[in-house]
Amino acid sequence: MNEIFQQLVNGLALGAVYALIAIGYTMVYGVLRFINFAHGDVFMLGSFTGYYIAPQIAEWFPLPGWAGWTAVMISTMIICAIIGIVIELLAYRPLRNRPRLTVLITAIGVSLLIEYTCQHKAFFGASQKAFPKLLPAGNFTMGGLSFNTTQFVVLGVTLILLAALTFIVKKTRIGMAMRAVSHNSAAASLMGISNTFIISFTFGLGSALAGAGGILYGMTYTGIEPLMGVNVGLKAFVAAVLGGIGNLPGAALGGLVLGVVETYAGGMSGISTYRDGIAFAILIIILIFKPTGLLGSKQIEKV
């Protein structure tokens, strides 16, 4: 019995990271109608930003410690937002009016470029690195379950970021502009909304969340390497499709469901090898039976 709850805690912590990344996929899809495959690599860059920035920050704030951790989180999110905006500016903006397939293939190219550049010795190198300890280690048991601070922090931070994001999208002027662009970009620009600015803003916001995901992932699993974004990025993409691509709460829900399912599969003797396979089987089943995803709504396409 204990084990079942323990796995639930493990699964939610993993799912929370998927959720943060899935939101980036879904937001970009919402405004541009294309999948930014380089998003998983922004997540990886988030982990490495944390890795390289932590020793610098430790000179002002003690690490592990809460103040230092907050500083690492915020600076990583800012740096990742800039990275996301730059990727859009250099790789996607010149192709804005080209067929969507062109942009999609470019996104795959950007992803490979980041992965292989980072594997070079002059950058991060290919070997696995240990993510620094950012928070004081605290293991405690409650009713036979063992928790650590990180797991709570991962879930808490994810909830706070999701709430903040929902607020931005639903309650602010810029959020309204994002929704307008997503709904009909031509009409939105006729109403005086700068599409270019909104697209940059969306990339920045999504990449900041991916950066936060990178830090949380590093804190939870310790090992970081330049190819870590491939698998996690794909899973987050599955999560976004599972929840209904273009739908923000759907992406969060999809992430959590996927994380929990995957963790239960991983803990079962005999099928533990197939945990990744199960994630992709879910994608296929969803695409067959409910192509709009769990929370997605039907869209009428005018021909």
Partner: peptide, 22 residues
């Protein structure tokens, strides 16, 4: 006691280790 698998390059082993602990 139990036999579990992972895929080389995985980062998350908590699922398997929780079962092993059980």
């Amino acid at each position: 006691a139990s036999e579990l698998d992972y895929n080389g390059g995985d980062k998350d082993f908590k699922a398997q280790l929780t079962t092993i602990k059980g």
